[in-house]
Design a protein around this nucleic acid. Structure first.
Lengths: 242, 242
DNA sequence: CACGATTATATGTCTAGACATATAAGTCAA
DNA sequence: TTGACTTATATGTCTAGACATATAATCGTG
């Protein structure tokens, strides 16, 4: 196996060590849970000081590829479920960053006691109040996405008084509430009547769905579903590797 | 925005330095483009060795919060409004990591001179040979994704002789070819006849599409389109935030 | 066997140096 | 003014140590 780690392309040692390990993880040679060699073993193998392998392993840990446990060793982490990592900041920022004019429209807002469905969606057990919001984002006047959001008022009491008629809830939350964890799920569905009308597409047209759940230390903050027209809009990501 | 930077919770010095700088960036005190203090200045301010501040700054750079330029200094980066960052390693590793049995089936393989469409898709101008592959991945015997791939033989001559009847091309490439950059585009379409048959779903059912382009220093390696059943399959991502 | 105390060990952090390298800035000649 | 050359400097990488700390493993005791 000619490893993709070419000494000429990887001038520095710690990067080579990191790349070697990363490759073994990504190809599945070292599956999740596998204990990677101890620092002192890597020191021996690469003939370098401990700080050098430590830097390589620290970066892999920062990138969540491995988990390091004192006395036990370093272990390959379970891949982010489906090995997809997705970040979405804020649709308003996203659109304005593209140099397009941003439009926002609040379609529905309601403060209510959480229904069973709401509690299920937010993953909370106790009764409480929630804010349910439906709104639409547009770019250059064209529908860009519809948003269907639930905010748990037990976690974010300020949201009850927030004015979402001007500011999109995503931006408001980003500025007012720190979050510690989030999960995205991407899928595809066919547009139903309501969605088709809101996005100005045909009923039965493909839609890209992004479901996002946000937590602050095990406490759900918000659950949001974003629907994009599937054929026109695309989530693009560019990233470095090697 | 109450930042979670508590000196009592940050016992180690380099974490404190990192948190101090991060706080100034996130609060806007140091706006994008601002030059943060030189390492030797931070060494003086915190009374520690250069390696300690270097570790703090390196982690901030790895997290894309700052950009470091030799001789110039370290600068606050523009916030990443990039809509999505996505990593996908290898479907085989993905499925086996989930504890499901992986199945692979080569449906079509052809070595040919690049057509105009091929050249367009790969973004190359000159004529040359390509390998076109269609294959199917399954998990526990159920179709998981169909893959439609083009490999530029000018970039990867070994691919001409590779045996893709057993090993999926994605895994092979990962083992044999280093890449420096990649781009993903996610969209949604309706299944056409061929796709529907391959995925064992209905014609017109929603499909999740991941288009991936991979380069090695400005040279295209491969272009691949993955089609997933949109209603059953989901790309899930979980990540930490601040 | 269950449980608490001890020990061994891998990682976590840090130091005070070293040399390499990219590049901003300054210098000088055409 | 412009281009080529030189220099200064901030970061990049690395070493050979050190002590701290969490914890898996072992041992001893009831």
């Amino acid at each position: 196996m000619s490893l993709a780690t070419d000494a000429a392309d990887q001038p520095t040692l710690y990067k080579r060590i990191r790349a070697d390990i990363e490759k073994r993880i990504l190809t599945g040679e070292w599956p999740p849970g596998h204990r990677i060699p101890f620092e002192h073993e890597l020191v021996a193998r690469y003939g370098c000081s401990r700080m050098t392998v430590n830097k390589a392993l620290s970066e892999l840990a920062q990138a969540d590829l491995i988990e390091r446990r004192r006395r036990a060793g370093s272990f390959v982490r379970r891949p982010q479920h489906l090995s997809a990592v997705l970040k979405i900041a804020d649709i308003r920022a996203e659109i304005t960053a593209l140099g397009r004019s941003y439009g926002y429209e609040l379609m529905h807002r309601k403060l209510r006691n959480a229904t069973a469905a709401d509690r299920d969606r937010l993953g909370v057990k106790t009764a409480g109040k929630v804010v349910a919001i439906t709104c639409r984002h547009s770019a250059d006047g064209v529908p860009f996405a519809v948003e269907d959001r639930l905010i748990d008022l037990a976690s974010v009491p300020d949201a009850a008084a927030a004015d979402f008629s001007r500011e999109p809830p995503g931006s408001w939350l980003l500025h007012h509430v720190p979050w510690t964890e989030a999960e995205h799920t991407i899928s595809a569905i066919l547009a139903d009547d309501r969605t088709a009308e809101a996005l100005d597409i045909a009923v039965g047209a493909p839609c890209l769905v992004v479901d996002r759940y946000t937590w602050r230390s095990a406490r759900t903050i918000t659950a949001v579903r974003l629907l994009y027209p599937g054929d026109s809009h695309r989530l693009v990501a560019r990233f470095k590797g090697g």
